[in-house]
Computed example of a mutant assay.
Amino acid sequence: MGPTLLTLAVIIAALIIRTAVSELRHPGTGSAQWAFLRDGRAVRTGAVAACVLGLFGWFQAGPEGLVWALVAGVLVAFAVSQRPAD
């Protein structure tokens, strides 16, 4: 589980650094990048994806599968929030 958590920490750090650099260059863009967390539809979709993937991930890889399912859920939520509403 060590390498998985280290990889996850690197991914989170890279996203935070990306947000900070963007905020320094153009004030106000940092909150816009994380606005998907306030979109209820996107958060629900990401949570469902994380649960489904977490179930399959648990059977395939154990606890590491849950970690990657969480990352996938966040990416799904981000992608859904970028799509125009129907």
Rank of each mutant, 00 (worst) to 15 (best):
R25W: 02
A72V: 07
A69K: 02
R38T: 14
A42S: 15
L6A: 13
G62M: 07
V52H: 04
M1L: 13
W68P: 00
R25E: 09
V71I: 13
E23Q: 13
S81D: 14
A14K: 10
C51H: 04
V80F: 04
P27D: 09
A13L: 15
A9K: 07
I17L: 13
A77Q: 05
L66Y: 02
G62Y: 07
A85M: 10
A14F: 13
W58A: 07
G65T: 01
A35E: 14
T7R: 06
A13R: 09
A72W: 04
G62E: 08
P63N: 01
L6E: 10
A79S: 11
A85C: 08
C51W: 14
L70K: 03
A13C: 10
L24Q: 13
V21W: 13
F78C: 03
V43P: 00
L75E: 05
A50E: 03
V43G: 00
Q33V: 06
L15V: 11
V52N: 05
S22V: 08
V48W: 11
G2L: 09
A32Q: 15
I12V: 15
F59T: 10
P63H: 01
L6I: 13
F78R: 13
A49N: 01
R18H: 14
T29Q: 15
A72N: 03
T19I: 14
P27R: 11
P63Y: 06
A47S: 15
L66E: 02
G40L: 15
V76L: 01
H26T: 10
H26A: 09
F56P: 02
F59C: 04
H26S: 12
G2E: 07
H26N: 14
R41S: 11
P84G: 04
V52K: 02
G54M: 08
W68K: 00
P63L: 06
A77I: 08
Q33S: 05
C51E: 07
G57A: 06
T45A: 13
G28F: 09
M1A: 12
L55S: 07
V43A: 07
P84F: 04
V48N: 02
A61F: 11
T29K: 15
A85V: 14
V48G: 03
G2F: 02
V52G: 04
V71E: 04
Q33W: 07
T45Y: 05
V67T: 09
I16E: 09
R25G: 06
I11C: 09
A49P: 00
R44Y: 14
E64W: 01
S81Q: 04
M1K: 03
T4C: 09
G65S: 05
A77L: 09
L70P: 02
L37P: 01
A85F: 06
W68I: 00
G65E: 03
A35C: 03
F78W: 13
W58S: 05
P27L: 08
G73C: 06
S22M: 13
M1G: 12
V74P: 01
V43I: 15
S22T: 10
E64P: 01
R83A: 11
F56W: 10
R41H: 08
T19L: 12
L66Q: 01
